[in-house]
Each structure stands twice: as C-alpha cells, then as structure tokens.
Design a protein around this nucleic acid. Structure first.
Lengths: 167, 167
DNA sequence: CTGTTATGTCAGAAATAACAGACGTTCCTG
DNA sequence: CAGGAACGTCTGTTATTTCTGACATAACAG
C-alpha cells in the first residue's frame, strides 16, 4: 500500500506500483487474476499495468509448464532495479528535456530579445544537465559491486581524490 | 513550457514548474501579477504556487524599496537547486517511506504468515534504502565544488580507490 | 470446428488534481 | 478612520488521470 502511494507522488500510478510491490515480495510467479483479486482491482487494469511494468523492464514473463496463463516475476536485485528505473526515466524524460533545452539555448543565442542573463542561465542549465548525463553514462558501466563500495564509502571518497584535480 | 511539462511527469504541477522556470530566467525580481500575466494563469494560482516554491526553498522573497508588492527571485546556483529539491523530496517522501518500511519489516519478522522470501526481500529493501540514505546524508556535507569534481571524474574515480576497499 | 480460457482493447464512469474567480484579511496612506 | 492595494484562502468548475466493465481477439483442447 505504501509503495503504491509513494509511486503516486513520483508520477507512477498507484496500481502499477502496487503490482510491482506485490511481485517483488512474492516468492513465486503470479498471473493476472491472482494479482487482481489480491489487490482488489480490475483485471483489465492489471493487464495494462503489467504491460507498463514490462516496458520498464522491472518484471518479466515466465512460462509455467502446464499452465497457459502468463506468469510474472519482478527483478529482485535492487541495484538492477534502480538502474532500470533510471534508464527508463532518462530515456523518456531527461533526454527529450535536454534536446528541448538545447534548442532553447541555441535559439536564445541568436535572439536579441532574450536578455544576456536569460541566455547565460539557459547555458548554465544545459551545461549542468550535460555534465550529469555524462556522469550517468559512465556510472552505468561500473559494476554493481563497485558501485556499492563507492556508496558505502560515502564522503570518505573525497580522501582518495587526487589533490585539486585539474583545478 | 517544456519545464512545466517535465514537472508534470515528476509530481510537480505545471504552474509551479513554469513559474520556477520564469523566475530562474528572469534577471530581476518579479511580483505575482507580472507572473500571472506573463504565463496567462490566475493570480490566485500564482499565489499558491509561489507559496509552494518557497516551501521548497527554491525561491525567496526580496523586498523592493518603494514597492509594497512581494517580489521573488529564484535560486540560480544549480548545485544548490538540486540539493534543495533533493532535501525536500527526502524529507517529505523518502523519510516517511523508510519509516513505513521499517514498520513493515519489523512486523513481518514476527508474523509467521509472512513467508521467508517476503521477509528477506523486505529486509533487503530496507537495508538498501538505509545505505542510500546514509550516503546522501554524507554527500550533503561535501562542498559543491568538490562534488562537481567528483562528477566530472565520472567512472575514473574507480581508479583512485584503494584496491578492494574493505572487501 | 466448437467451446473454453486467457489476454488485449476500448469507451465511458469515477476519482483526483489543477485552476479561476469571488471573497476576506491585512497593511499602508492620507 | 476611510479607502485602496496587495495578498491569502476558499469554493466550485474544469481538465486530466485512473479505473472499470464490456467486448474483441487469440490460443488451445477435445
């Protein structure tokens, strides 16, 4: 239930988040009808939600021999889970946003009606976003175990920095 | 406009995001009425949105001498901006979620009706979340300039780590 | 081929969120 | 103290999202 509500605040609808939570906690693959009655929502809703979760790569179909129904399991590795969510959000939202920002910044460059300050801020935003995007792209290729170590290091990471790297 | 739409997908309503964008690009403090007519929305809506943005610490009131109206400016340092957004989201959403998760995990511990797998997964989720929370808390105290260096390093950071840090 | 079971699709109902306009309050001015 | 200006709040309306139930399609069994 909590997972469902939380989802709502992040632009994921409640049913989708609830189904995800249910599958995450389930020790065996579930099919649509069981999910629908467990959560008390319509099967059609489950069907659509499962499709969305599949689109995010957070669940996958598993065949159960002797049962025609589609069964689903959730990815249970949490690092993998956040990686996939991040990948989805980036692709659907961040990338188009950067593209739009690039267009804005370029147009502002030529438009005398746009003040110097606005131009500068657009540029700053674009630079920042692109820096973050680059960081993300690189971190994506770091193995999860290494990432976990980095995270656990916390701010002690700073100690290992070369002194004043490239000023 | 783009900023506004993007906001919608992240649980921030359009007006709020649009006003934020407008203030971010403006070179001078603006008051409610100017914002309302610029964006074509009702002043009451602007009033509420300004309150919300203030609650997130993304804008602040600045007094203009000889003018009774409240004028607002946005935080323009992008590092500061993301820090504040992160702080707000954590406080309002992540912290309650962790609290709920803790309760769930604790109850599951004593409840024989909860399977071993579900118990284990709840525990894993809680551990993961707490690890991330700890990391966030530490990173919060790292100066922006240092953070920026870390980000620009990207995955090259791995090179500087002591080999196999604490296994 | 026919009946059965599962899944997908769609239109409209229900719920929720966003918004505008009216009203009330406060604060300032003369 | 009266008048005016800015701001906040509240209520009803509009728009959007979410969800459901009915129907359509596909896969399979006998």
């Amino acid at each position: 239930m909590h997972w469902g509500n939380l989802g709502g605040q992040w632009g994921v609808n409640r049913s989708v988040a609830q189904i995800h939570a249910l599958l995450y906690l389930s020790d065996k693959p579930l099919h649509a009808e069981v999910i629908a009655e467990t959560l008390g929502i319509a099967r059609s809703n489950v069907s659509n939600s499962l499709k969305e979760l599949t689109g995010w790569n957070l669940i996958r179909r598993v065949p159960i021999s002797g049962d025609r129904r589609d069964h689903f399991v959730a990815e249970t590795d949490l690092w993998e889970m956040v990686t996939r969510i991040a990948a989805g959000r980036k692709e659907r939202e961040i990338d188009p946003a950067i593209a739009a920002l690039r267009v804005c910044a370029a147009q502002a460059e030529d438009d005398p009606a746009v003040g110097a300050v606005a131009r500068r801020r657009l540029k700053a935003m674009l630079d920042f976003t692109q820096t973050m995007e680059g960081w993300y792209a690189q971190m994506l290729h770091v193995p999860h175990a290494t990432l976990a170590k980095l995270i656990r290091l916390g701010s002690r990471i700073v100690r290992y920095l070369p002194v004043k790297p490239e000023a």
